[in-house]
């Protein structure tokens, strides 16, 4: 038995990643960061090792590691994390030469959007309900008890949308949803799953690329951009100041923003942050965006939301 366990230990050692040249902590989708890492290595010869989880898990790991950071590059699904890290002075300022065509609102000191997700209504085409056109449609009797929405505490996208609703005095839509029997169902996937099986008809504040990918796989679900406008969730990519491999990290950011990298972003149905990459889906320029100027602070947004849905 001793010999067996020794062999196992050796096996484990061997399977340990070799000292990574660039370590990337990334929020989903997994396929995207996997492709980006592979493409980057092919192009530069630098190895990229990836830890992929939800934004929350990535942040928890960064927080627990903060006395001895491991990551060089972080990709999050929530712009707020970038603002926060920047305020704490954790980010390395870097303006990639490939970021020229990225619009200003998708850039800040130390962070740039890798891609952008849009918030939509995810509607099951076989649900027997009329196709909704706007957020407020989901408060109509046809959708009674048939709507889910992700918890803004668990989904950065939903949070941004709720924030914009509060900023634009649209909270009556949320109240209408609640009165119509909509339920709050965890993170984005937990909200989408019942819609796929048909238990519910639509996700309020669904995420466009997840819905489009599901549709591409043959699920009977459609992403609808509401007429009154929506919000987008830019996904910041940032280099940590603590990185020991800053040059390699910069090269990684360059690669993500390169034409090849942005095409990989588009492949998972996210909007590329560069405006000069043409993709067959609605892009930022095509969307009517709601402003979130004048929105209350995070705790107040969540408290207001809880007041309506509890």
């Amino acid at each position: 038995m001793k010999r067996l366990s020794l062999a196992l230990v050796m096996g484990l050692l061997a399977s340990t990643a070799a000292q990574a040249d660039v370590t990337v902590y990334s929020a989903g989708p997994g396929a995207l960061i996997k492709n980006l890492a592979a493409g980057f290595t092919e192009k530069t010869g630098i190895k990229a090792n990836v830890f992929q989880a939800t934004t929350g898990k990535v942040m928890a790991r960064l927080e627990a590691e903060s006395s001895n950071p491991v990551a060089d590059v972080v990709v999050s699904a929530s712009w707020g994390t970038a603002t926060d890290f920047s305020a704490k002075g954790l980010l390395l300022p870097y303006e990639s030469p490939n970021a020229e065509t990225v619009p200003d609102f998708l850039k800040m000191e130390g962070a740039v959007a890798q891609g952008v997700a849009g918030l939509i209504i995810a509607w099951n085409t076989q649900s027997g309900t009329p196709k909704p056109a706007d957020w407020s449609d989901l408060a109509k009797p046809e959708y009674k008890d048939l709507v889910t929405l992700p918890d803004p505490a668990a989904s950065g996208g939903t949070y941004t949308l709720v924030e914009a609703f509060l900023a634009n005095d649209m909270s009556d839509v949320l109240q209408g949803l609640k009165d119509n029997g909509a339920i709050v169902a965890g993170a984005n996937k937990a909200a989408l799953n019942p819609v796929l099986q048909g238990a519910k008809a639509a996700v309020f504040a669904g995420v466009d690329y997840i819905t489009m990918s599901a549709a591409a796989k043959g699920e009977t679900v459609e992403a609808i951009f509401p007429t009154s406008g929506t919000v987008v969730a830019p996904r910041p990519i940032m280099i940590l100041k603590s990185s020991q491999n800053q040059d390699d990290a910069k090269q990684f950011v360059d690669y993500v923003l390169s034409e090849e990298g942005q095409k990989a972003v588009a492949k998972v149905n996210l909007m590329p942050s560069r405006t000069d990459i043409k993709v067959d889906r609605p892009l930022i320029g095509d969307l009517k965006l709601l402003s979130n100027e004048g929105a209350p602070a995070r705790d107040d947004v969540l408290a207001d939301f809880k007041k309506i849905f509890n």
């Binding site: 939800t54 929350g56 898990k57 942040m59 928890a60 927080e63 929530s78 668990a154 950065g156």
Partner: peptide, 11 residues
């Protein structure tokens, strides 16, 4: 779990 997996993290 929520305090760990939802931004902002509260270790």
């Amino acid at each position: 779990e929520n305090r760990i997996s939802e931004w902002p993290i509260d270790l």
